[in-house]
Design a protein around this nucleic acid. Sequence first.
DNA 1: GATCGCAGGTGACAAATGTCATCGCCAGGC
DNA 2: GCCTGGCGATGACATTTGTCACCTGCGATC
Lengths: 201, 201
Amino acid sequence: MIKVLIAEDMHMIRGALVALLSLEEDMEIVAELDRGDQIVPTALATRPDVAVLDIDLPGLDGLSAAEHLHEQLPECRTLVLTGLSRPGYLLRALQVHVRGFIVKDAPAEKLADGIRQVANGKRVIDPDLVAAALETGSTPLTGREVDVLRAAESGNSTEQIAAELSLSPTTVRNYLSNAISKVGGRNRIDAIRIARNAGWL
Amino acid sequence: MIKVLIAEDMHMIRGALVALLSLEEDMEIVAELDRGDQIVPTALATRPDVAVLDIDLPGLDGLSAAEHLHEQLPECRTLVLTGLSRPGYLLRALQVHVRGFIVKDAPAEKLADGIRQVANGKRVIDPDLVAAALETGSTPLTGREVDVLRAAESGNSTEQIAAELSLSPTTVRNYLSNAISKVGGRNRIDAIRIARNAGWL
DNA sequence: GATCGCAGGTGACAAATGTCATCGCCAGGC
DNA sequence: GCCTGGCGATGACATTTGTCACCTGCGATC
């Protein structure tokens, strides 16, 4: 019997995934949650064999949770289940010892399959996504460039970003300018879009 | 027996929702699809009692599909199932005679419940979303303002937007300026974000 | 027939944005 | 010890963006 923990913030989707996995004879769902910051405590209490994590979770994102989980419960294997297939996410996932990476538009059977594979110590990664990740590469942006792009995302002006990050407005513009040219954008909107889609933010 | 059509683009989620509904004794899924433009033809062939539609579908969005469905098969009731709870979507949904509107983070049981209610001729709408929709109101933007904001979204400069829409650059800036002030934004990025979140784009 | 709103446009202006060269400081790597 | 790269900053510059006043024309609507 494979003991499974499942973390997904949208209640109905989580319920539906549980219904899907309930059809499998060799699996048991030992925990269901909707917040990233509850993953480690719940896993320590329920000792699952496989943790199925969404990336976009409130409290703590799934990848950070996976990192802590690996440190505190290394025998629990992690499988990431995400709707957004951003190459950068895969890179980060591998760095935090995630064993499987499945996108939500893969066929439904792949989930149970994936859980079994991961429980057996194998890795499960969509080949298309690997190709995309290799093509895209890891982020060309420095830490501060990421900070500035993130702050720009909500429509803040250069001045407001500077205040938020305690920087000089000119410095902010330099970082933005660098970020724009690094990702190959035409302006900040473009740069934000490109970096988001790549999974660099 | 309630005959159900289900349209959802992410394969695994669709499979999971089907698994969820398969547990219900009084329902039968007569069609499963992943594209909006197949909804009407498939519905005409399978004659479902209730069509469960995601909004964000390739080919044709769920709301436009709902509109056509109501014209060509009025006895089929439509229930929208969406992950993004944008007030503007609800307004548009009611205009195209959608009978139910459920968000994906509602509890899983609500889906089967909702389908039964809608099949019985009742309406099903989340009260919180109604409140949000009344608060937000319908779009203050004119058709062209929406066009311009949409074009700006991909990071195009004023000049490029003008070329795309065959307008003068000055006109584009006027529309953008109007849109920014109407939605209460500080600049185009802000305006795009606000309008997106409200469901006006 | 007058008024209103939307589409489309022009010209002018101030402010914000993007780009560059150049500086200092500090941490790591060779 | 030297070099590199990230971080932070300054000043100058051209371009883009946002705003405003004002113009035309069209189709509703009163």
